[in-house]
């Protein structure tokens, strides 16, 4: 059997890739995908722990995370489209009406 710590390391690595992508990528859609990566890292963590301690709460939370992520994706893309209608760009560095 694969030990729990492997899953935890996998979760931590995926989460770290997500954080790195969020901070370094410039395309809004890719930044957005990085956030999804972070959420899925959490799901890996939750489900492996839930299986390890034989408790269902972790899996329930994972379902909620998936559902909320879907709602978040809908709102996020709607915001990007609203922005795109006013300024045809999907590049974070070009969205700088306000600074200081």
């Amino acid at each position: 059997m694969v030990p729990l710590s492997w899953y935890m390391v996998l979760g931590a690595v995926v989460f770290a890739i997500g954080v790195f992508g969020f901070l370094s990528r410039k395309n809004i859609i890719i930044v957005f995908m990085s956030i999804e990566l972070m959420l899925n890292a959490v799901n890996i963590n939750l489900i492996s722990m839930s299986h390890y301690i034989q408790d269902l709460r972790g899996q329930i939370l994972a379902f909620f995370v998936i559902a909320v992520a879907a709602a978040e994706a809908a709102i996020g893309l709607a915001i990007v489209i609203a922005l795109f209608r006013n300024k045809a760009t999907a590049h974070v560095d070009e969205v700088k009406e306000m600074q200081g």
Binding site: G11, F15, G18, F22, I28, V31, F32, I35, M38, L39, A41, V42, N45, L46, M49, G58, L61, V65, E72, I75, G76, I79, V80, A82, L83, N86, K87, V95, K96, E97, M98
Partner: peptide
């Protein structure tokens, strides 16, 4: 639009941190 985008990206980022904390 820009306010919503920034709020959304950083808000979603922070809720991922919340979830990771909860999972730990």
């Amino acid at each position: 639009n820009e306010a919503a985008l920034k709020y959304f990206l950083l808000g979603a980022f922070s809720s991922a941190f919340l979830l990771y904390g909860i999972s730990l």
